[in-house]
Design a binder for these strands. Structure first.
Lengths: 236, 236
DNA sequence: AAGAATCTGTGCGCTAGCGCACTCTGTATT
DNA sequence: AATACAGAGTGCGCTAGCGCACAGATTCTT
């Protein structure tokens, strides 16, 4: 059941398309529920679909040989999961997993590529988005190198918040730790400080952000760099 | 003077083009010397040229507000500097600087985009390359998170070596430290171990790799992941 | 040849984050 | 109501890497 809440127009990329292109794609969009933890694709796996998140967040994770992991980027309604398809590499060496439950529209690979290969607005919008994604990945590298867990947690919360309709997110500290690639105890400590300061409130896998401004004051420059690039590139 | 040593065919991307496209571009290629430390573009700067390295290495660096830096990716003969142009974002929030001196071919932005907008082989080759570059950036993020300076130095040396004609590189420990985003002393220590083990030999900004295999044994998985992706994507 | 500048080696105290081993506390199960 | 279990808090020793302060050593400058 496609209700107003889940109109494909919630996806910035689809919204940005001229009507003709949108009409060609629209009939092939399929609304899918995305439960927490669902894996959209595994490292090295060929993609059958391209996904346009609506109100969910998809996390691009690299999982190391020893099982440790690190988040490379997050994708929400502003983007698309499956850039390897149109970039031409078929697969990527990482995993896409649902970090926050919700809905996606998806479209079959062939149909999508058919439209992409018309070299119209879709192509340009996707390349634009991909560049913004590249900035996010670069900044993740920088942040991993130079900033404290405290700051990274703030960045992570803000990036997630920007992609969610509310100020609540369902995440255990364990999961956040996997994303940031740090210890669970490290997250406990960092989150404790934020709670102490009255910026967030959480209990058993449920985080409510009380003071967004406060988070922005504590976060490292990485968040703003990424946000500005997304605003700049995607609103042009 | 364009001699055989610096034929544009040294650039994998240019080589991979079908003849018709190559012929259209060829007259506009300009051979440029790239001295160590030269900045091709500054963070946020609009690009006038696209660069195809021949025997030099260009480093994509993010420079933080406090002056600290971190390398995001390196580009050699396999790639191109200036992806922001065809990705559509115009600029990127990082700096491109010559890490190893040599020669580049460059081409004016307008002429380049004219060819790109024909949506031919050039487009596909560039997107392919960009995806490989994305993998390199992702893996940099992972490596920064989880691996030791020792391992990262090995990765860095190998990635550089792959892009150079010889087994020598002109780099001070100070510069390497800037690239890796660590202390100079950290590099001294790590490099000392490698020298001790007989894998490299260096003196005052001059490194000779004696035992490549040995480096490969010590490096973290990140190197192979990146290398495989480049081989896979670019040789298809 | 003398001096300056650059590059590298070393030592030392400090801190963030790790790994591990627990405990405590809500929630879910039966 | 009893039990199990997942999520979160805490403590402790350990290590990698940081910041700083020098001390050689080699190359460049004059």
């Amino acid at each position: 059941m496609i209700d107003k809440h889940c109109s494909p127009r919630k996806s910035h990329l689809l919204t940005a398309l001229p009507d003709a292109e949108y009409q060609r794609i629209f009939p092939h969009l399929e609304l899918i529920e995305m439960p927490l933890g669902e894996v959209l694709y595994e490292s090295g796996e060929k993609l059958l679909y391209v996904y346009f998140p609506m109100d969910c967040i998809i996390s691009l994770l690299y999982v190391m040989e020893n099982g440790a992991s690190a988040e490379i980027a997050v994708v929400g309604f502003e983007g698309v999961v499956g850039i390897a398809l149109f970039m031409g590499g078929q697969t990527m060496p990482n995993r896409a997993v649902v970090q926050s439950a919700g809905y996606c529209y998806r479209i079959r690979q062939q149909i999508f590529m058919q439209e992409f290969n018309r070299h119209g607005a879709l192509l340009h919008k996707l390349l634009n988005y991909t560049q913004a994604l590249i900035t996010q990945m670069s900044q993740t590298a920088v942040c991993n190198r130079h900033h404290s867990v405290d700051q990274q947690l703030c960045r992570w919360l803000l990036l997630s918040l920007d992609r969610l309709p509310s100020n609540e997110l369902a995440m255990t500290q364990e999961l956040i730790a996997n994303m940031l690639g740090v210890r669970r105890e490290g997250v406990t400590e960092a989150a404790g400080k934020l709670q102490q300061a009255g910026l967030i409130q959480y209990s058993r896998g449920h985080i409510i952000v009380l003071d967004r401004k406060g988070l922005e004051e504590r976060v490292c420059e990485c968040y703003q760099v990424v946000k500005k690039e997304f605003d700049r590139i995607l609103n042009s």
